[in-house]
């Protein structure tokens, strides 16, 4: 059941057979829903997330207090990024009902919203709203990372101008929280089992830079472990950006080949063969 750390020390292989710096298989698609302005489907290992973006559009009737109040609304100068996350009851092993007012879900929503609105050029769309709805179909660790990646892809599909990809992944450490063992290895992309047993964090960076948009750590860990975990996480985000970029480019190529879109001026640098 627990991650057998002794086995890890012998073979340097994790429970699912990965090495410390390996991502799980990432499968992503964009433009999965024809009706939506932008949509995506993303799998990181067994974590499966679907995302639909509508907008930028005129804001609908004001939803109850979520954006208003103490936090300070944008006052209509920038587009508001409204995120709603639905976690399916069948997504995890123990069937759980996730109510609408679940604080953890609300926190995830506000994190995804804040992370993306810093990268999206919201100032181009005053008095409007970008709706991102995320559906969690299956959970196996790195949920926040998957949500951010899926939302980024869907925003790209929706054609909303943005600075760069916001790519996210998780990193962990093989040390337990109390032990300050220097020998502890950092781990990349934690699955559910590792997330339960080991300290870990979620990092999201902007494009290829070292600039961190989201950093969430929810477990106890020695301060000395942070640097290693963060370095591995940032590196993983760069890998993730490449994967996301490839998905977008492949879809673009296919669409040109199929004749769905005209080959534009800006696409000249893409080799479409």
């Amino acid at each position: 059941m627990p991650l057998d750390t002794s086995a890890y020390n012998l073979a340097l292989l994790r429970v699912d057979g990965r090495r410390w710096n390996e991502l799980r298989r990432v499968h992503a698609q964009i433009r999965t829903q024809a009706a939506a302005d932008g949509s995506s489907y993303l799998e990181m290992g067994h974590t499966k997330v679907m995302c639909v973006v509508t907008g930028p559009s005129e804001p609908g009737p004001r939803r109850g207090g979520a954006g208003a109040g103490g936090g300070g609304g944008s006052g209509g100068k920038d587009a508001e990024v409204a995120v709603s996350i639905v976690i399916a009851g069948f997504s995890s092993v123990d069937r759980k009902r996730h109510g609408k007012g679940d604080k953890r879900t609300l926190e995830l929503q506000s994190t995804v919203s804040n992370a993306l609105s810093a990268s999206l050029h919201t100032h181009l769309f005053p008095h409007s709203q970008i709706n991102i709805s995320l559906h969690v179909l299956s959970q196996d660790g790195s949920l926040l990372a998957a949500l951010i990646n899926a939302a980024t892809l869907a925003c790209v599909d929706a054609g909303i101008p943005m600075t760069d990809y916001v790519a996210a992944c998780t990193a962990g450490s093989t040390s337990t929280y109390a032990a300050n063992d220097e020998a502890a290895d950092p781990l990349l992309d934690l699955n559910h089992q590792e997330e339960q047993e080991l300290p870990g964090l979620t990092v999201a960076t902007l494009g290829n830079s070292d600039r961190v948009a989201v950093l969430v750590c929810e477990s106890r860990v020695q301060v000395g472990r942070l640097e290693g975990m963060l370095a591995v996480g940032v590196d993983g985000c760069k890998q993730m950006r490449e994967i996301l970029d490839r998905v977008v480019r492949e879809k673009g190529q296919r669409m040109i080949q199929e004749g769905t879109v005209e080959r534009g001026v800006g696409l000249n640098d893409m080799d479409v063969d």
Partner: peptide, 18 residues
């Protein structure tokens, strides 16, 4: 004792990792 219990940078403008 130098144990991190939680870190939360929930979005906002990206900041250099260092």
């Amino acid at each position: 004792h130098g144990e991190i219990c939680q870190i939360a940078k929930l979005g906002g403008v990206p900041v250099d990792a260092v």
